[in-house]
Design a protein around this nucleic acid. Structure first.
Lengths: 208, 208
DNA sequence: CTGCAATGTGCACACTGTATACATCCACGA
DNA sequence: TCGTGGATGTATACAGTGTGCACATTGCAG
């Protein structure tokens, strides 16, 4: 039901603005999102955006929500790609590793979207529907529960373990995008990420 | 040798600007640092700052360097406060734990300075002297070497282990300051930080 | 066809960083 | 003592930003 007729009224400015903002953020980073910049990309007057968003912040938050959805899909895709011929124990830890690698690789392949996804943690602009994919945080909880059920992680270790995982993974991404790992090649960064994830998994599953 | 005479010439505007910027950053965050805002706080014309800094970015980077020094001092203080009656093995892991806790608590007590310290990783504005305390990164390297020497960490594990540590610690701070741990009480945040550091240390030192 | 609600435009305002020209002050040499 | 010149702060101006308000244009409901 898209009105593609290009009249005085744009037809679906809202979607066009979001898409233009995503393009801009991917190329120039989330910080480059400006109201005039985005509307200019669409070829429309700056104030036209105010018919669809309360202010710049609302626009950015909406775009950020979309970015978080893409991150979530990227993670889920990677989780589904795990070879299914594994025992539940090995499989669950592989899923944790895949989660971390997907997170880091999303950050390093599209840093602007990663920045947006991080910024999306504030409440959505209005009572927006929650129809998207499960948020990354919930995916992680599921993986940890799976590890506990499979017996690779002691139940006592499960409590609040998500924050240990989230810290490692988010820290890796942050160092890669904004920190001292910026200059590294993609392969080197992935190698360090694997190392950190190995250490994390060992820490979660070690006996002592 | 401070000229405190308040004439037409300020006397030591550069230091005053840096101090005002630090105050502003502590109260309103590093993002609130504006050229006009800082000069206004000192009570001076906006362009006066250009006599001491090339542009806003140079000012912020200088202030950021000072913030990183404070972070480093905060870490060193905490390291020195460790009870010296410990064996080298136990002592080295306690030092790693103290490093992480100091980092996270610095971030949660002065988020604006923490943001600045992170931003200081770009090159200093000009060929500024390196006279300050050792940068946090080097402190961490020393602790890990100490752990290896003490035998609590296998030498093979030492390689690139700093990035695993840095990820965990920086991730914790980031979640605390900008992420979903914002709403937590200080004690709760520290508890989660201890948990994550336990997992990290276990991962670094576990046998298997 | 008429009016109305939705949507996009134009203009204005306060704010930002910064360039350029000017004013003021201090130190030093005759 | 008197300049005089370099250092330092000011004044003005300009492009850029987000945003409020009035107006123009469009499509739809009656």
């Amino acid at each position: 039901m898209k009105r593609t007729s290009p009249g005085y009224h744009h037809g679906n400015l809202r979607s066009a603005l979001i898409e233009a903002a995503l393009d801009l953020a991917r190329d120039k980073g989330a910080g480059a999102l400006g109201l005039r910049e985005v509307t200019r990309a669409v070829g429309v007057s700056p104030n036209a955006a105010y018919r669809h968003f309360a202010d710049l912040r609302a626009l950015v938050l909406t775009v950020a929500l979309e970015a978080r959805h893409r991150l979530a899909r990227s993670i889920v895709d990677r989780l589904d790609a795990i070879t299914p011929g594994l025992g539940p124990a090995r499989r669950s830890t592989e899923r944790l590793r895949a989660f971390g690698l997907a997170y880091v690789e999303f950050a390093q392949s599209t840093p602007g979207w990663y920045e947006l996804a991080c910024a999306s943690q504030e409440a959505p602009p209005d009572g927006v529907e929650e129809g998207g994919p499960p948020p990354p945080h919930l995916i992680l909880l599921g993986i940890l529960d799976e590890m506990t059920r499979a017996g690779v992680m002691a139940p006592a270790r499960r409590t609040d373990a998500e924050w240990s995982c989230w810290s490692t993974v988010h820290g890796l991404a942050e160092l890669r995008v904004h920190g001292p790992l910026q200059a590294l090649s993609g392969e080197e960064a992935v190698r360090l990420a694997r190392l950190a994830l190995d250490t994390l998994i060992r820490g979660l599953t070690a006996k002592s």
